[in-house]
Design a protein around this nucleic acid. Sequence first.
DNA 1: CTGTATCCATGGCGATACTG
DNA 2: CAGTATCGCCATGGATACAG
Lengths: 242, 242
Amino acid sequence: MSGYGQFCPVAKAMELLDERWTLLVIRELLAGSSRFNDLRRGVPHMSPALLSKRLQRLEHAGLVRKRVDGARTAYRLTQSGEELRPIVEGLAAWGVRWIGELGQEDLDPHLLLWDMRRTIDVDAWPRRRTVVAMRFTDVPSSAGRWWLVCRDGDVDLCDFDPGFDVTATVTTRLPVMVRVWRGDRSWAHALRAEELRIDGDADAVARVPEWLGQAVWAGVPRPTEAELAAAREPALAGAASA
Amino acid sequence: MSGYGQFCPVAKAMELLDERWTLLVIRELLAGSSRFNDLRRGVPHMSPALLSKRLQRLEHAGLVRKRVDGARTAYRLTQSGEELRPIVEGLAAWGVRWIGELGQEDLDPHLLLWDMRRTIDVDAWPRRRTVVAMRFTDVPSSAGRWWLVCRDGDVDLCDFDPGFDVTATVTTRLPVMVRVWRGDRSWAHALRAEELRIDGDADAVARVPEWLGQAVWAGVPRPTEAELAAAREPALAGAASA
DNA sequence: CTGTATCCATGGCGATACTG
DNA sequence: CAGTATCGCCATGGATACAG
């Protein structure tokens, strides 16, 4: 008996969606990944066996359609899966508003850069090859140096020096970069506080914040002071006087 | 390591919300239940130990505030918890649209009547005492007979004959009533198909569907034929023509 | 009424290795 | 590249009994 024994549509939905990893896989599909290994990159700590199992289950439930084209396989959301987009976006907004504390183990530079890479608005970048290097001073060098290579509307992410001239270098600590990416801090704020440095061609330096931007959900308004105060008391408490 | 190791706000939200039962407890709180035993009634197969544990965890995470008033305890959602309402409603709408198949074990008459009872719009009922009996022909008599007693803006649910005059009696099979309640079928449709009968005072009989109504989420539009067809193919497949 | 304590079985899931 | 196979643990949560 793994179900809830309820006809309530929330219960029926959660029978499918509350399994560990499932909604993150859907998040990846919503973000546009369709290859097995691209999906894996978005959920690094998930074993391939489990990812496979989840995809099968989602396909069985009609949220995902698998298509094999020769040697390649693609997973796409169906209409049903696509309609989870507002829910996943709502969860992102809720999470960014109300879960501010991150553990050290949540700070994965690989995931951060992978997310940057796919979010980057290439049209804001110069047409000619532009390389932004990123250096995390608090991370072992193997995961502490990254290169974003943008050329002609295409972005590549390298964890090794690709050898091209570096247009600008961002140097900071990983938690700072995550905070900026999440939108908890602005680029300007981090720069002013000297928690983050950008070096290189003067013209490029000024434009790096715009080039890299922030996560798509970073703009969600945070709780106001009044809301934080209210959060310490029940909402709509229903006349607590006396 | 029970977390996801991701700073993504969806992942952080799901670390909390993807635990079994959690979102159903939140659903109950959103519906207005605040007493431990009222909450229990909404999640009948959940052990009290687990409910207690979940409430503690939600309180710890700041979604719920516990208040003890003398011998009674009340759990209320905070602002943070309250802001999950659109997400839970979205899940309900999604579930009702895309998960139509219910197992026999999902058809719980107790839950159905409990949901009816709390949804009923008492203002639509007569002011004088009105009793609607419900009889499920396919359910063992112990859970097959119910009485909704409405008087002066108050509704009571009984699983035993309260002894009052019965104004009208609904007789049907449980799956039919659930379908009607979910909005998969209308009262009128079920009556016409003779899957459901209403007996009693002629005037009352005509008004029972209006008195009982349907679940709040029953009105969600179902997938059109075109959408169902599309559901069999990937959404936004991105030019599949060779 | 509002929980807590305890016990135990299950199976989900993490880890690793391996294949077409 | 796209998965499957296998193994074993331990935490999750189901069941029951009991307490303030």
